[in-house]
Simulated assay, not measured.
Amino acid sequence: MNLVIERLPEINQAMLETFAMIAVAIPVAVLLGTPLGIWLFVHAPDGLAPRPRSHAIVSGLVNMIRSFPFLILLIAIIPFTRFVVGTSVGTAAVIVPLTINAIPYFARLVEQNITQLGSGAVEASRAMGATRGQIIRNVLLVDAKPGLIGSITITTVSFISYSAMSGLVGGGGIGDLAIRYGYYRYETPTMIAAIVLMVLLVSLVQFTGTRVARASDRRITA
């Protein structure tokens, strides 16, 4: 316990670094992944405006980036990371691959959420003369809102775990703390503290996301 107290400054710094990673990667993933996911849905072979060839290329790129294990991606794009942020180590350097990996991950979730709505509402909107943009904004995104909030929660939880891997390359955060003190220095109490903090953080995100998604679901009545 005394050892954990001694490490409190490092623990606090590690938590701030983890928050920084997620606070940048997730909003950017939502900002860029949402239109990408909508594009994948709209231009799918059975979508609102089919473009089979373009869709196959973009979908293939999304699958390729998603299939990369994060640690391999982290190492593989070091030159690009250094070009973007000027360094290949530290929290800023981890944010780049974390964001690159999160965008297609979230885009695929957006596509799935919209696809699961079915075609009933779309066909009804078309019959009333709604444009493609109106269908997307006023029908699909509105109906998919609870699912999208759930997808943001899932993405956040997943990338909190991914951020822990950054410790292997000196990226900072809770994972780095656990590796530096818990693994290399055999400080078991510090390792346990890091694990507990990660569990609490994930639980808080999951609880909050579930509550917000439930509150936004119009199908649920009091």
Results as ranks from 00 to 15, higher is better:
T34G: 00
G37R: 03
P189L: 06
E6Y: 14
V89K: 11
L8Q: 10
A124F: 03
A194P: 07
R126T: 12
A29L: 05
L16R: 08
L73W: 09
F41R: 12
M21S: 03
G33R: 08
Q134V: 01
D46N: 15
S59M: 08
P50R: 05
T190H: 02
I5K: 15
M165S: 10
G37E: 00
I22T: 07
S216M: 14
T81I: 11
G172Q: 01
L109C: 03
L109Q: 04
A215V: 03
S203W: 04
I195L: 09
A14E: 06
A20V: 14
I22V: 09
A20F: 09
S151Q: 05
T91W: 00
G86Q: 11
K145A: 12
T155A: 14
S161N: 15
I11E: 00
L32W: 14
L197R: 13
T190I: 15
L61I: 15
L168I: 15
A92V: 12
S161G: 15
I11S: 01
G172T: 02
R126I: 12
A121H: 08
M1T: 15
V24R: 09
I114M: 00
S88G: 15
R137P: 02
G170T: 04
L61G: 08
G118I: 03
F19G: 08
L71Y: 06
W39N: 08
A130D: 05
A29N: 00
T208D: 06
P35M: 05
S119C: 09
P104T: 04
P146C: 01
G170Q: 06
L197H: 11
H55F: 09
I5L: 15
P35N: 04
A107Y: 05
N12H: 13
G118A: 07
Y181N: 13
T34W: 11
F68I: 13
V62G: 01
M191G: 04
G182Y: 04
V199M: 14
V142H: 13
A121P: 02
I160Y: 02
F19D: 10
F19S: 08
F41Q: 13
I136R: 02
I77D: 05
L32R: 11
R185S: 09
H55R: 07
A29H: 03
